[in-house]
Every structure is written in C-alpha cells, then in structure tokens.
C-alpha cells in the first residue's frame, strides 16, 4: 500500500466506481450480518415481517430478510418455568435459600372465615409462542394475578382444617384445571403443568393455639392409655387372685369330702367288726384307748377312789395347777 497523501486521496475519489463498490459492500455486509439467526434446541422462533406475524420456526440456523424487515422472537417452549407465591428463592444452588412469609401474597381467607397462609408454586410451559407474544401484554403479572385469584377462590371455598389437611391435593388438581381454563380464555398460550402447595400454616399469632390442639390429642391419648394401664395393671391380677380363691375353695371342698369319706370308711370298717362281736369289741376299744392314754408322755396322776378325806397333793412344778376340788369332781365324773 502506497503512502497516503493528498495526491492519492484525490486519485481515489476521482474514480466514482470504486466509491460505489465500497458502499455496496458495506450494505451487503450489514445485510448478511442481519440475515441469519439461530434458534436453540429448547426454543421456537416467531417471525414477523414488517411487524406482522409471518411464521413460527423450530430449532436450527435460519435465514431472514435483513434491515429489520423480518424480526425473530425466540421463545423457550421446552423450558419449564416456575412462579413462586408467598415465598421466593433468594439463592439457588445445592442448598437453596428461601425468603418465606411474604404474607402479602400468602394470607387469605378460608370458607369458614378464618385466616390462613398458603405458599405455592406453579410450573408452566409456553405451548403457543404466537399466542404468548401477541395476545397479552403483561404476561408474568397476568399469570401471577390469575394464579393468586384461583388459589384464593379455592381456599375460600373450604374449611381451614380441610385446607391444611385432606383437601390439599384436591386444591392442587382443581387449581391447575381452573388456571388452565383461565389462561386459555385469555389466549396466553401457556399450559400449567403443575400447581404445588407448599407450606399451609395458620397465621403467626394463632399457631400456638393450633399446636396446642395437636398436644391436646396427644394428651387425650395419654389419658386413655393411663386408664388402660391402670386397668391392665389390676384386672388380670384380680382375675388371678379370684382364681386362686376359687381353687383354694375347691381344694377345701375336696379335702372335706375326702376326709368325710375316709372317716366314714374307717367307721364302717370298725362298725362291721363291732357288729360281729359287739361286747368284746367295745371293751377292746375302751381298754385300748385307756392304755394309750395312760402310756402317754404327760404321765397322768392317779388317785385311789377308795381313800376318803385325803387331800391329793400334786406337784406344782408341772406348770399347770389343778385344784383338788375340780380334780376330784373330774375324777368323780368319769
């Protein structure tokens, strides 16, 4: 390249064709540059020509008319988008951090006119990029408004305990249907994939009272178990003792009857012998008894009945004293 001086510039501009070429090349470069656009695998692109909807194209590299005649709007149609209500994710990562208790959104009234805080999320996907772009202006705000209105409506139709308990999944299902219906009417071009209720709690001021009910049910069970415990600790024992008493009585009965039978058997045996020789047997029994009596270890004292006016003296060392009169009268009685 030669030295740029006045002369060469002059020479350059004296050739009009060169200038025109340069302009053409610049224009062509701009055209080529704005001619291509790429659409990501997760996207679809809506193309407008002079502002008017032209077509929707899928992923890949595409051509369009330059200078803003064709415009492409890439819309993520495969991405699941999430909106959070009543809380928000402050920091995403392995351990998410949340900001809870955005009560402006979560406070609502239940059907029995109580106050409850409900947190939930919705997940949606854009299914119709054209409708998404050209039907509604404030799309995210609309999604949030409708979603809140639907959840408020459903919660407003149920009792507080049901909302916290068994109606939960029902609300999820119904709200999804209702939201989809609403969005379809507005032509938002999205499909709600899921509505998930998160924390459903009574407001801060009354949580203790709700907790107390849980404690009360525990208390109730404790009381019932205490009652059962006392019952169980005594009744089987009492039952056993009763059985014992009855067993003892049965033993007594058996003993009594058996003794009677034994006594009678012995009597009968003796009586049979006696019948055979009454006089001798009677004498024998009497004498045997006496024999037995006088050969006992206590060594009974004898007093001759023929002796008159003799005071019988008995040693007092035996421990028991017998007065003469009683002794003699006893002897007389025999």
């Amino acid at each position: 390249m030669g030295k740029i001086n006045k002369e060469s510039v002059k020479r350059f501009f004296s050739k009009p064709s060169t200038v025109i070429w340069i302009i053409v090349i610049i224009v062509a470069l701009i055209a080529v540059e704005s001619n291509f656009y790429s659409v990501d695998e997760t996207e679809q692109a809506v193309i407008t020509r002079f502002g008017k909807y032209n077509t929707t194209v899928g992923p890949g590299l595409h051509l369009k008319l330059p200078f803003g005649i064709d415009k492409n709007y890439n819309i993520p149609v495969k991405v699941v988008q999430t909106e959070q209500f009543g809380f928000s994710t402050v920091k995403e990562g392995r351990n998410n951090e949340y900001r809870n208790n955005i009560v402006d959104e979560s406070t609502m009234l239940t059907g029995d006119l109580n106050i409850i805080n409900v947190e939930w999320i919705i997940q949606y996907r854009i299914v119709d990029p054209k409708a998404w772009l050209f039907n509604v202006q404030e799309r995210t705000q609309t999604i949030r408004d409708i979603s809140r209105s639907v959840i408020n409506t459903l919660v407003g139709d149920r009792a507080i305990l049901d909302v916290m308990g068994q109606e939960r999944s029902n609300i999820e299902v119904q709200s999804q249907e209702m939201m989809n219906q609403n969005f379809k009417q507005l032509g938002l071009g999205i499909n709600i994939i899921a509505v998930k209720l998160q924390n459903i709690v009574p407001p801060q001021g009354v949580q203790d009272a709700f907790e107390d009910v849980n404690k009360a049910t525990q208390d109730m069970n404790r009381f019932i178990n205490e009652g059962k415990e006392a019952y169980n600790s005594e009744i089987p024992k009492a039952q056993g003792e009763a059985d014992q008493q009855i067993q003892i009585a049965q033993g007594y009965a058996a003993e009594r009857v058996n003794e009677a039978k034994g006594d009678v058997a012995r009597f009968n045996a003796v009586y049979d012998e006696y019948r055979r020789a009454p006089k001798v047997t009677r004498e024998r029994i009497y004498l045997e008894t006496m024999d037995d009596l006088f050969s006992s270890d206590t060594k009974p004292t004898l007093i001759d009945g023929k002796l008159g006016n003799i005071l019988p003296v008995k040693s007092l060392t035996g421990g028991s004293s017998v007065s003469p009169s009683s002794s003699s009268s006893k002897g007389a009685a025999q």
């Binding site: 009497y286 009596l293 270890d297 004292t301 004898l302 009945g305 017998v322 003699s328």
Partner: peptide
Amino acid sequence: MESYKSTLKNYDATYSTNMD
C-alpha cells in the same frame, strides 16, 4: 374314744381309780 386318744394325752391330768 378317738377323741380321748387325741386330746387327753396333751393334758397333765389326774384320774381317779373310780374309773371303770
């Protein structure tokens, strides 16, 4: 007789020979 046998034995008794 049975009764005498079992009970009187235990008493430190005095008998009169007037007995049969």
